[in-house]
């Protein structure tokens, strides 16, 4: 199964994935070329990005054919970045609001104590 040693994907598998990567990057470019807006734009861009990333890591970088222990050791830690992503988003909202209050067009003049 997944962690059988020494097994290699065939050349045809590589070429198919390679072609798919071109299709996916063209598709994400077309989203911008035709200037799609709103949730459609974000969801398509994120879906194409994650699909490409998944194909590269699993097939081109052979992760599907590695030992389960290596998969977990490499793929689980980056999930921590999601925490940083959440903190970054919350913090950015707060900074945006603060900037609006103190530096925005309708803000009162800065007071120096």
């Amino acid at each position: 199964m997944a962690n059988e040693q020494g097994q290699q994907p065939s050349l045809a598998t590589y070429l198919k994935i390679w072609g798919l990567l071109f299709v996916l990057s063209t598709a994400s470019y077309l989203v911008v070329y035709f200037d799609l807006q709103g949730y459609l734009r974000w969801s398509l861009l994120i879906a194409f990005m994650l699909l490409q990333a998944g194909l590269i890591v699993s097939v081109l970088m052979h992760m599907l054919w590695e030992r389960l222990a290596l998969m977990y050791a490499i793929l689980v830690p980056p999930l921590l970045l999601l925490t940083l992503l959440g903190i970054g988003a919350v913090e950015a909202d707060y900074t945006f609001m603060t900037r609006g209050t103190f530096f925005g067009p309708s803000s009162p003049p800065a007071q120096h104590p």
Binding site: L81, G88, A89, E91, A92, D93, T95, F96, R99, G100
Partner: peptide
Amino acid sequence: LIGYMNVRMSTQ
């Protein structure tokens, strides 16, 4: 990339 997201979201 997360730092980039942060500054892009927070700028007026």
